[in-house]
């Protein structure tokens, strides 16, 4: 089964399924998606940042702080590309059945733009300002500061100006809607979304 020419070399689908919420057939279906994404610009079975940008924003160019963080979190080996195994690992967190602790941790690392181990006020300001700019919306500095103040008053329990992982966990448990992007309902039904896996499958779940 390993090293099959049609599949990612050295990837053990059964092991990936065992270590994730996915069945073997679902891993195979996700491989169909991975093939499409990883060959969209450079046909090398690796997802480059431009390919992730193209999939998320329908444009291969342009800076985006969110894209950088998402890509970094997928790219576990920090070698500038997303391999299939890394793709499965990251998507596992977004599965409806994934533990909420994993979703909380992943979201924290997304928002921790500078990777300091804290979500800092400047980072939140930067994210809000970026979205305002992208959306052609305007907000006075006064109102923006008011929103940030209110958010930190709720989330930053020890009032040190930054949100620790423990504070983040307590905060999102009070506001679970903040984690809604951390669950992708598509992952519950990937074999239906990518039925072409059936032409390549070698196992029956």
């Amino acid at each position: 089964r390993q090293n099959s020419p049609r599949t990612c070399q050295y990837v053990d689908l059964a092991r990936l399924a065992h270590d994730s919420p996915f069945s073997v057939n679902e891993v195979e279906a996700l491989y169909e998606l991975f093939k499409k994404l990883s060959c969209s610009i450079i046909d090398d079975m690796l997802i480059h940042k431009e390919e992730l940008r193209l999939a998320l924003f329908q444009a291969p160019y342009g800076e985006n702080i969110f894209l950088d963080r998402v890509f970094d979190l997928f790219d576990e080996k920090k070698n500038g590309v997303i391999e299939f195994e890394e793709f499965i690992h990251a998507l596992s967190v977004f599965h409806p059945n994934a533990p909420i602790e994993e979703k909380i941790d992943f979201a924290f690392r997304l928002y921790d733009l500078r990777q300091t181990g804290f979500i800092e006020r400047e980072e939140v300001q930067q994210m809000v300002a970026t979205i305002l700019m992208e959306s052609d919306m305007t907000l006075s500095d006064e109102l923006l500061n008011l929103i940030i103040d209110k958010t930190f008053a709720d989330a930053d329990s020890d009032k040190d100006g930054k949100i620790s992982k423990a504070e983040w966990k307590a905060y999102v448990l009070k506001h679970p809607s903040l984690l809604k992007n951390m669950t992708l309902p598509y992952l519950k039904d990937v074999t239906t979304a990518f039925p072409s896996f059936i032409f390549n499958t070698e196992v029956e779940d």
Binding site: L33, K36, L56, F57, Y111, D154, Y186, F194
Partner: peptide, 25 residues
């Protein structure tokens, strides 16, 4: 509606919404 900064970010940022990976594929 978006009095909470994180609510605003998670609702408005397409960058943190990975569902588009599965759309139009």
């Amino acid at each position: 509606k978006f009095f909470n900064a994180f609510e605003f970010i998670s609702s408005m940022s397409s960058g943190f919404d990975l569902s588009s990976l599965f759309e139009n594929k």
